[in-house]
Design a protein around this nucleic acid. Structure first.
Lengths: 272, 272
DNA sequence: GTGCTAGACTGGTTGAACCAGTCGAAACGC
DNA sequence: GCGTTTCGACTGGTTCAACCAGTCTAGCAC
C-alpha cells in the first residue's frame, strides 16, 4: 500500500477505508458492514479490524455507536486539515482538486505572512543562523538548477521559518499543509515553481528578520507568493481533468529572466 | 470522565493518556510501559488498551514501533490544530495557555477575514437567508442580555459564515478552532466578550455580503475584532495564573456605551 | 576484542466467547 | 384492529489466551 513505513494490517485497512471515504466511494450517512463481516471481507479478525475503525473514528471519518454500527461521517463538514493530504491523494474528482488547490493558495500566503511576521518579532540568534544556513544551501541548489534539492530544502526553510515564530498555533496550523506539500513533491516530483526571484526573496526575508523590519518582510513575502501563485493558477485551470499530461520534462532552473516556469502535475497511479 | 457521550473504556483511557501527554506529565521521548503492563495498570485487557493507543497514534501523540514499544511524540513539533481544544483543557501551565490564547487571536482574525471575503464572493441566496435568520436571533438575544444564548447563537453564525464561503480548506481550518471555542464557552460559561457594537457588526457584514462589497465586509470584521481582542488581551495578562478568580458575575449586555466588558474565565475543576 | 546467538523483551495478529446497547418484528392484551 | 410488550437478532464493547514477529542485549564462542 501507500504507507511504506508501517505494514500493519490495521493501518493498511485504515488507509484503504479512508481512501474510499475521501474519494466518495463510501458516502456520508452510509452504513458500513458489521465489524464481523468487514473483518472477513478484509481477510483478518475482528480485533485487528477494530483498530482500523478506531483510527477512522479518531480522524472523524466515521461515527461509531453501540448497537447501531459504523456510519460514514460528512468529512466535508466535520473534517480538519489533517485530511488535506490524504484527500488530495484519494480524490478522483479533478475539478474538486483544482478548487481545493485554488482555495489553499490564499490561506497559505496568509499563513506564511503571519509566520514571517512572528519570525521578525521573535526570532532569536539561533533561528536566524538556521535560516541563513538553509538559505545558503537553497541558493546553491537553485543556481545549479537542482529542482529536487530545492524542493526538499524549501521544506526545511519553511520549517525553520515557522520555528522562528515560536508559536504553537502557527506550527499546528502549518503541519498539515506541510504534509500535503511533502506529499505533492513526492508524488509529483516534476511539480515545482521555479521563480527567478526565489533567491532574492529568501535574502530579503532573512535581512528583514535580522533587522527586525516587519513591513519589509511581509511585503517581500506577499510579492513573491503573488508571483508564484499567479503562475500556479495559470497552470491549475487547464489541468483540471485528472490525467492531463502536459510538458512532463523539467525545465532547467534560472534560465528564464522575467517569467516563472511551472511544471504541471503528472498523475502517478498507484496500483490498487 | 470528561467524555459524556461515549463511556468506552478505550476512549476513557485515550483521553486520560492524551491529557497526561498534553499537560507534560508524560514528556516527549519518554517510553510508555508495555501494552500488557498498561492494560493491567488501567484494569483492562490488552485489546481494549491497544484501541486507546491506536487513537493516540492517529492523533500523533505517540509513535509505536514493533519490538521497541510506544514512545511519546513531541506534539509541540508534530501536532495539528486538533490538539488545540484538548491542549487548552489539559495544560496546567497557565502562562503557556495565555501565550497560546494570545497567539490564537491574530490567526483567528485572519481566518474570519478570509472567511468573510469568500462569503462575499460566493454566498448564494440560501446562505444570506441563513445568516439573516441567525442575525435576527442574535440581536434579539443580545438586546435581552442573554449572554448564553448569544454565545451559542454566535457559533451558528460562524458556522453559517464559513459555509457561505464554500471552501473545504476554510471549513477544515475553522473546525478545530470552533471546537476549542465550543469547549471554552462550555467550560467557562461566564467568559464572553460583550461588545456594544456587536449588532452593528453583524448588520454591516450581512449588508456587505449581500451587496458584494468585499472591502466593507473586511473592514467591518477587522475593526470589530480589533476591539474584541483588545478587550480580551487586557484581561488575558492578569489571569495568567490558573486559578485567578475575578468578578465572576455576568454583567448585563448592552449597558455600556463605549467600552466592552469581559468576564474573565473561572476555573471549573472536573473530578478526576 | 569481535561476532554470533539465544532469550527476553516489545508490539502484531488471531479466534472465540461473552457482555451490552438498539431496533424491529412478532406476540400479546385490550 | 390497534397499541403495548417482549423477545430475538442484529450491532459494537470487552475479555481472554495463545501465538507470531520484530528489536535489543547480555553472554557465549571464537
Amino acid at each position: 500500500m501507500e504507507e511504506a513505513r508501517n505494514a500493519n494490517i490495521a493501518d493498511t485497512i485504515f488507509v484503504e477505508l479512508r481512501r474510499k471515504i475521501l474519494c466518495g466511494e463510501l458516502k456520508a450517512g452510509e452504513r458500513l458492514s458489521g465489524e464481523r463481516e468487514l473483518a472477513t471481507k478484509y481477510g483478518t479478525n475482528r480485533n485487528t479490524l477494530r483498530e482500523a475503525v478506531r483510527k477512522l473514528e479518531q480522524a472523524r471519518l466515521v461515527t461509531v455507536r453501540h448497537g447501531q454500527g459504523v456510519t460514514v461521517a460528512d468529512f466535508r463538514k466535520t473534517g480538519t486539515l489533517d485530511l488535506l493530504s490524504p484527500f488530495l491523494q484519494a480524490s478522483l474528482d479533478g475539478s474538486e482538486i483544482a478548487h481545493v488547490m485554488e482555495d489553499i493558495l490564499e490561506p497559505r500566503v496568509l499563513l506564511l505572512e503571519h509566520a514571517t511576521r512572528l519570525a521578525v518579532r521573535r526570532a532569536d540568534k539561533g533561528d536566524i543562523e538556521r535560516l541563513t544556513d538553509i538559505n545558503d544551501l537553497l541558493i546553491a541548489a537553485f543556481d545549479s538548477g537542482d529542482a529536487g534539492v530545492v524542493a526538499r530544502g524549501f521544506q526545511r526553510w519553511l520549517d525553520a521559518l515557522i520555528d522562528a515564530g515560536h508559536s504553537l498555533i502557527v506550527r499546528w496550523f502549518a503541519n498539515p499543509m506541510l504534509d500535503a506539500y511533502r506529499d505533492m513533491v513526492e508524488r509529483y516530483p516534476s511539480l515545482w515553481v521555479l521563480e527567478p526571484s526565489f533567491p532574492k526573496h529568501l535574502r530579503d526575508v532573512i535581512r528583514a528578520i535580522s533587522e527586525g523590519n516587519e513591513q519589509v518582510a511581509i511585503d517581500a513575502t506577499r510579492a513573491y507568493y503573488m508571483r508564484v501563485d499567479g503562475a500556479l493558477r495559470g497552470h491549475l485551470q487547464p489541468s483540471s481533468s485528472r490525467d492531463a499530461d502536459v510538458s512532463p520534462e523539467l525545465p532547467a532552473a534560472g534560465s528564464q529572466d522575467s517569467e516563472s516556469t511551472v511544471v504541471p502535475m503528472r498523475r502517478r497511479r498507484s496500483p490498487t
